[in-house]
Amino acid sequence: MEVVIGKTEVLLLLVIVGGSEIGLAKYLPWLALYLDLPLVLVIYIGWYSRPAKAALCGSAFGLLADAFFRVLLGLNGVSKTTIGFVTAYLNRWVLIGGFFPRLFVISSLTLLDNLIVFCMLELLSQPVREGFGYHALIRGVVTGLAGVVIFQVYDWLKLPRREFRA
């Protein structure tokens, strides 16, 4: 089933992500630490878009995340551009219909995102905090679980209802 994600929708999602990040950091800081909401949306957009659009959206969400997380601008830009691009190709070979395939794919992509961030920090000789691996694992699970729910809600909103009656 084809899902079309327009420019206005992407802009709206950027605003929602920005607002959610501020709200989560204030009211649920533990969740904000482990949930990568921009990444979930990058994966969703990547899954239903062509590679060029997925990479562009990945970059936009990544830069927004950098601005809100107050880290080096471009750190998440690089990682999320890559994730968006990879996801757009991944949907040609992988089917993520059920709960566990979705959880596995989103968690794996979250780990890949963290790995890219780690490599970038090393490349730029920036300090990496202790317990990065442990943090990345928890982040993978939390983002994976939240991602499955967000995917489900988004599918429900976007996809037309199926009529099985003759």
């Binding site: 501020i22 950091a25 809100f68 997380f69 107050r70 982040r139």
Partner: peptide, 11 residues
């Protein structure tokens, strides 16, 4: 007004 929720920054 905001707190960095990132693992890499506590500003």
């Amino acid at each position: 007004i905001w707190k960095s929720s990132s693992f890499h920054s506590d500003h």
